[in-house]
Nucleic acid binder design. Structure first.
Length: 411
RNA sequence: GCGACUAUAGCUCAGUUGGUUAGAGCGCCGGUUUGUGGUACCGGAGGUCACGGGUUCGAGCCCCGUUAGUCGCCCCA
């Protein structure tokens, strides 16, 4: 009995294995295939950045920065942060690596992200996203292309059933400010009747009152000022081009005027693909236009739009388990044939045939083990009169692949 | 940071008002069929009942604390 205690996994991390890992890989493989159709270029980004990359882009005061980032000092006493999102790092690279030369540039990436949060269904401290951004394109067509790609991806994954695209506009900077002021004025008039959380939001993040889950707030959110009444002509026109572009592309959408973004750099289009199948974490893919971000990192005003989607959440929605092909399982029923069997196993694999072997435990039970393995065929290998015997069983043993296996396994 | 629920075999879970030596299925190991087979049958190994206190003649079960997990709130870039 060892006195060494096995270390526990870190809170909010996950070990993904087997069928779940196959689902995970299926999501990233499908994303890679789709993004190439739309000619998004692949980028590999660092997993950590100087903390300023995120704190400047997010705004210093938010909870997000103060409580929910994985930050640490390195040996040079520099504050670094494990990336909580892709967008800020990509924006930083755009500026420091001179990607303006490629503008407008379409970028796709995927990988792990880190947020110091309490884990719950579909939320982890280390989680994984796929991400797509268009930087340097001010036109609504960029928003449409990005949404069409997202819609396409969800359909290819077979999970578009029960998932709806909710769409909103936050207007340009001036529209957004006017609307925000009207909301504050409206909710302030009902302040004492709002939930405690929303009274707090009134100061910090009034837009968020609109998607409060508290019934005390919902009484008022229905009649709250609508962004539509504050949109400039240009903002109206922009949104109209996005919606008509979606219609033309055959992408179904619903207007959700309560859909907001908490950060100031968001402009115009905001969207989320939402499902009711994941409990409280219903957003499967979300994004929007962030024309104000580059300036917060000290760069020139640069229009940009993007989205990200949680790989775990997408994988959870996949209907069918991702099954690995399994052409043949060799059952070694006599250890005298073991060397022969292992040699043939190697030959099968070199021929591109998915093969495995069961050669341990009671020889008499190996056939049953092979049956339970789920292989399409079982090659039982025995030994008689000084020579190996081969016998192939399966539901379909007349096909060309079986004949090829038979030929390779011939003693 | 807050709340509710949960913690028993490698896995999924039973376990009566608190009463002898802790239960099943799956998985693992072994045996059985005088075997070209199809998930069978029999047996075995495997438990500090999360951890630490308390109540009691007696605790897997009741109480307190800790830790961890699940779900939700806050937050959601």
């Amino acid at each position: 009995m060892s006195s060494i205690k096995t270390p526990k996994p870190v809170r909010g991390t996950q070990d993904i294995f087997g069928a779940e890992a196959e689902s995970f890989a299926h999501v990233t493989a499908t994303f890679e295939r789709i993004r190439k159709l739309y000619r998004f270029r692949r980028a590999e980004m660092p997993v950590f950045e100087k903390s300023e990359v995120f704190s400047r882009s997010l705004g210093e005061t938010t909870d997000v920065v103060s409580k929910e980032m994985y930050s640490f000092l390195d040996r040079g006493d520099e504050s670094l942060t494990l990336r909580p999102e892709f967008t800020a790092g990509i924006a930083r690279a755009y500026l420091t690596d001179g990607w303006k030369q490629y503008a407008p540039v379409k970028i796709a990436t995927h990988g792990p992200l880190f947020r110091y949060e309490r884990p719950q269904k579909g939320r982890y401290r280390q989680f994984h996203q796929i991400d797509a951004e268009v930087i340097g394109a001010a036109e609504p067509q960029a928003d449409v292309e990005l949404l069409a790609m997202a819609d396409h991806l969800l359909k290819e994954l077979g999970i578009s059933e029960g998932v709806t695209l909710q769409l909103n506009t936050l207007g340009d900077g001036a529209s957004r400010e006017n609307w925000r002021a009207a909301l504050v004025e409206y909710f302030r008039a009902h302040r004492s009747e709002l939930s405690e959380d929303s009274q707090d939001r009134l100061e910090r993040n009034p837009l968020r009152i609109l998607d409060s889950k508290d019934p005390r707030d919902k009484v008022f959110t229905a009649d709250a000022p609508k962004i539509d009444d504050y949109l400039s002509a240009e903002a109206q026109d922009f949104f109209a081009q996005v919606t008509s572009g979606l219609d033309a592309a055959g992408v179904a959408w619903e207007r959700n005027s309560a859909l907001v973004r908490g950060l100031d750099y968001y402009r115009h289009t905001a969207f989320e693909f939402v499902t009711d199948r994941l409990g409280a974490q219903g957003t499967v893919l979300g994004g929007g236009r962030y024309d104000g971000l580059m300036e917060s990192l000290g760069g020139p005003a640069t229009p940009a739009v993007g989205w990200a989607a949680g790989i775990e959440r997408l994988a959870m929605l996949l209907e069918a388990e991702q099954e690995l092909p399994f052409d043949v399982m060799i059952a070694v029923e006599d250890d005298a044939a073991a060397t022969f069997a292992f040699g043939k196993l190697n030959a099968l694999r070199r021929a591109g045939i998915v093969a495995d072997i069961v050669a341990t435990g009671s020889p008499k039970k190996r056939f049953d083990k092979a049956v339970k393995s789920g292989a399409a065929r079982i090659a039982a290998i025995g030994f008689a009169d000084g020579v190996a015997t081969v016998n192939i069983r399966g539901d379909n043993t007349d096909d060309a692949l079986t004949q090829a296996i038979q030929a390779i396994l011939a003693p």
